[in-house]
Design a protein around this nucleic acid. Structure first.
Length: 853
RNA sequence: GCCCCCGUGGCGGAACUGGUAGACGCGCCAGAUUCAAAAUCUGGUUCUUGUAUGGGAGUGUCCGUUCGAGUCGGACCGGGGGCACCA
């Protein structure tokens, strides 16, 4: 028996698909359209297993939909701007453009080797002027629409490198390379007005039925709508009141202090004449800008000496603190603290010896002696010590207080969002240049559209501190397009999330002179199935939704939501290995010695097996897809990617797993070859009737086709795999009798067709071997005979008090009475029932009989 | 700290709207084939108990709802992800 030679055969079919243009999407077609998109990769250098998993999932859907008769768009491109290219430039003295484009060349070759059915005619790379120039045009559109503006924003500043650091480059409050303590600095930044769309982006989530529930919840929380009130507190000896935002106006009588953000204008003003406060604010600015850093840091406050008065208690003076846990961006940057009913406020109050006055009393507690210990009470209750609110529930007290505040003119209802505007300026080289010019006389002047793209200069260096664009000797010096006097370019580049906020539009018309062709976008959008990692659940997806909505509002396209279906796949994990010195060891260097002990291939030293973690370069627990494809072939790798683990969950890469997949590939080939080589022709059978064994096989085959179709539609590819194994097992059984050969041929033909989306090369090879003149990539998905989906008999479980005591085989649809009689007749049931009294019998047709005694 | 998700044999997992827990694969055990091995094929494989065509226990832990709970509700324990300049 000849073995299946994946390497040769896969290459053959890949060439044939490419020559025939099988995967080129048609812009005009009678067929219904289907747009499959996987999140495009960052060209980091090599394709990794996570990519392979992502694109295998997409390719299964794309090939399946194509077989179902859809006009499928399945494109690929490169999210090619970003930090790693600059890091490589710094470390290896290679230009980011060269590094990036070399990487795309290598990775394109790798992807083609896996046989993904992609429309390579539509390939894009965001770092090419053809793409980022269009993006600059879009930015000017956003400016014209009033959706882009400039304001100051805080950044992480590394004083040694004279560079702005990303959050991930700040480690324990220090710059990752310089080790210098990071400072916070204010810089002028461009922002998109995503907050104009807060309500829309939130409201439309409910209609995204094809999205995972958890992603919708994450976005909902991210947008963070909260209904509350802005309340004015008078401050002693000052004219301006302090405006705070609260969602708990019912607890106003329990207030014991007010707190300001370090960057609140009032804090700033007071600091001018107060060295200590100035130092405290500086202290607050140390450490990262991330939410986690702010919230886990010890809660610190500085008493400003000011006294504030709640509008409902003009005689009770509250101290005003500047505190490190108040965010300026959220609400008004100032709060009142009610320690009894907020855990953060409680910790703060205990630390600074402030009053803790419970005003919401839980059921069963007395208002007179209820006290708060270590935990704030945030549950429901009845108001006390609260004047006109006394006796009301907390739910009733909120509107009562709001009505009161509005009546006396000291506050009003206000809806606030946690969502902030999208800051998109980056002080870096490798990104889309911001297409504006700063002129002393005219201010901010957009680059005229005919001058786009604003190209990145090629002659830059990275060994010096600071932003290469800013340092460049000539690039930024230009004439003002308005007045002609000397002016300077904006030296910032866009956040790379801007690049990925519209690439799915570009794929619809990748060669258009405009950013995208309206008609083609209207035809292809929305993306019917988008697939990517859960790590993009919030930012990327929200930004893409914002872009689509904004462009719709500008009349550039007709859709409001870009992604109809979303699937978030799990990560690819692998065990980690360490040698005796604690150094990470690559899996390829680990072998088992005679005793089965993991050992280093080269040194022969024992290796300890660590926990299973996401494949990462730093822990060396990576497997190179290229090596695996060379050894086992693309189909085997693709098969393993979808076997066993549900696509939404993490997958653990194991050698035995890939070997199992490889054995299955060979087994499929063998079963089909043996049938072709050793069977008599089906025409040698007389008549067209089927014996019981043949009928059973036909049922199994048709059920498998129906089940696999359903599983692919619902992304349960691991279940589809299990069904296919079951069919192959059934084909392994020898059968004889009437119609045996015809049934086997039918089952094998169906089998080859349903494995095609997953193992496309092997499927083509077997399809051809079965004597077909067509290729399977252009063949319709098989039709199921509905008569084959029903069984004649069903197995019914018989329980006594919910415990299984026997089963019975009855014709499908047997009536309740017969079921009851048969169940009671079972020996084991009779033995247990003996002289017991039957209280009740519950019968679920075709399922179960439960006798209650 | 806040938000979200997940816990089922030795392992990955299956179980449709509450109805026979462990499909299918991996691993392991036994057998066939072989001079031998690889490959392949056949059978077995949740634990436990008198080896049984019987019984008991069992889906992270505890409690509850139900004739019946892996599935629904509550509390807890453990693991993972996100947190606005990584993409």
């Amino acid at each position: 028996m000849v073995r299946y030679n994946a390497r040769l055969i896969e290459k053959k079919w890949q060439k044939l698909w490419a020559d025939r243009g099988v995967f080129v999407a048609q812009d005009i077609s009678d067929k219904p359209k289907f747009y499959v998109l996987e999140m495009f990769p960052y060209p980091s250098g090599r394709i990794h297993m996570g990519h392979i998993r992502n694109y295998t999932l997409g390719d299964v859907i794309a090939r399946y939909k194509r077989a179902q008769g859809f006009n499928v768009l399945h494109p690929m491109g490169w999210d090619a701007f970003g930090l790693p290219a600059e890091n490589a430039a710094f470390e290896k003295a290679v230009h980011p453009a060269k590094w990036t484009l070399d990487n795309t060349t290598a990775m394109r070759k790798q992807l083609k080797k896996v046989g993904f059915g992609l429309d390579w005619d539509r390939e894009i790379a965001t770092c090419k002027p053809d793409y980022y120039g269009k993006e600059q045009a879009l930015f000017l559109d956003f400016m014209d629409a009033g959706l882009a503006y400039r304001k100051e924003a805080w950044v992480n500043w590394d004083p040694v490198e004279a560079t702005v650091l990303a959050n991930e480059q700040v480690i324990d409050g220090k710059g990752w390379r310089s080790g210098a303590p990071v400072e916070r600095r204010k810089l002028a930044h461009w922002f998109f007005r995503i907050t104009d769309f807060s309500e829309e982006l939130l409201g439309a989530l409910a209609d995204l039925k094809g999205w995972p529930e958890k992603v919708r919840i994450m976005q909902e929380n991210w947008i963070g709508r909260s209904e509350g009130a802005e309340v004015s507190f008078l401050i002693k000896d000052r004219d301006e009141p302090l405006v705070i935002f609260t969602t708990r106006p019912d607890t106003l009588f329990g207030a014991s202090f007010c707190a300001l953000a370090a960057d609140h204008p009032l804090s700033q003003e007071l600091a001018e004449n107060d060295k200590e406060l100035h130092d405290f604010i500086e202290q607050c600015r140390k450490g990262g800008t991330g939410a986690e850093a702010m919230e886990t840091a010890e809660k610190l406050g500085f008493d400003t000496g000011l006294k504030a008065f709640s509008p409902t208690e003009p005689d009770r003076a509250l101290p005003v603190y500047v505190a490190n846990f108040i965010l300026l961006e959220y609400g008004t940057g100032a709060v009142f603290g009610c320690p009894a009913h907020d855990q953060r406020d409680l910790e703060f109050a205990r630390k600074y010896g402030l009053e803790v006055l419970p005003v919401v009393i839980p059921e069963g507690e007395s208002p007179d002696d209820y006290e708060i210990a270590d935990e704030a009470y945030t549950g429901p209750g009845i108001l006390a010590h609260s004047d006109f609110l006394d006796g009301l529930s907390d739910q009733a007290a909120i509107p009562a207080m709001l009505d009161h505040l509005e009546k006396i003119g000291k506050g009003f209802r206000k809806i606030r969002y946690r969502l902030r505007d999208w800051g998109l300026s980056r002080q870096r080289y490798w990104g889309t240049p911001v297409p504006v010019i700063h002129c002393k006389g005219c201010g901010v002047v957009p680059v005229p559209r005919e001058d786009l793209p604003v190209m990145l200069p090629q002659d830059v260096t990275f060994e010096k501190a600071g932003n290469p664009l800013d340092r460049h000797p000539t690039w930024k010096f230009v004439k003002c397009p308005k007045c002609g006097s000397p002016a300077e370019r904006d030296t910032d580049t866009f956040d790379t999330f801007v690049d990925s906020a519209w690439y799915f539009l570009r794929f619809c018309s990748p060669h258009a002179n405009e950013p995208f062709d309206k008609n083609l976008v209207n035809y292809w959008l929305p993306v019917d199935q988008y697939i990517g990692g859960i790590e993009h659940a919030i930012l990327h997806l929200l930004y893409a939704r914002f872009f689509t909505r904004a462009l719709q509002k500008m009349g550039r396209l007709d859709h409001v939501e870009p992604f109809k279906g979303l699937f978030t796949q799990g990560m690819v994990n692998h065990a980690t290995f360490q040698d005796e010195n604690g150094k990470w060891v690559y899996p390829v260097d680990v072998i088992s010695d005679e005793a089965g002990v993991p050992t280093h291939r080269k040194t022969g030293q024992p290796v300890t097996v660590g926990r299973i973690e996401k494949m990462s370069k730093s822990k060396h627990n990576v497997v190179d897809p290229d090596d695996i494809v060379d050894r086992f072939g693309a189909d085997t790798v693709r098969w393993f990617m979808i076997s066993d683990s549900p696509p939404a969950r993490d997958l653990v890469w194991t050698d035995s797993g890939i070997e199992g997949a490889w054995r299955f590939t060979q087994r499929l080939y063998r079963i089909v070859r043996e049938f072709i080589d050793h069977s008599e022709a089906p025409s040698s059978e007389n008549g067209d009737d089927y014996g019981p064994k043949a009928l059973e096989l036909r049922r199994c085959a048709h059920k498998t086709v129906a089940g696999v179709s359903k599983d692919i539609e619902s992304f349960h590819l691991n279940k589809a795999v299990a069904r296919i194994y079951a069919l192959v097992n059934a084909l392994g059984e020898p059968i004889a009798g009437a119609g045996a050969i015809r049934a086997r041929l039918e089952a094998i033909t169906l089998l080859v067709q349903i494995i095609a989306p997953m193992m496309p090369h092997l499927a083509e090879e077997l399809w051809q071997a079965l004597g077909n003149e067509t290729i399977i990539a252009e063949t319709r998905w098989p039709e199921v005979e509905s008569a084959m989906l029903k069984d004649e008999t069903v197995t019914i479980a018989v329980q006594i008090n919910g415990k299984l005591r026997g089963t019975m085989e009855v014709p499908e649809g047997t009536d309740d009475k017969t079921l009851e009689q048969n169940a009671l007749a079972i020996d084991n049931v009779q033995r247990i029932l003996k002289d017991q009294v039957v209280k009740k019998i519950i019968i679920v047709p075709n399922r179960i009989v439960n006798i209650v005694i």
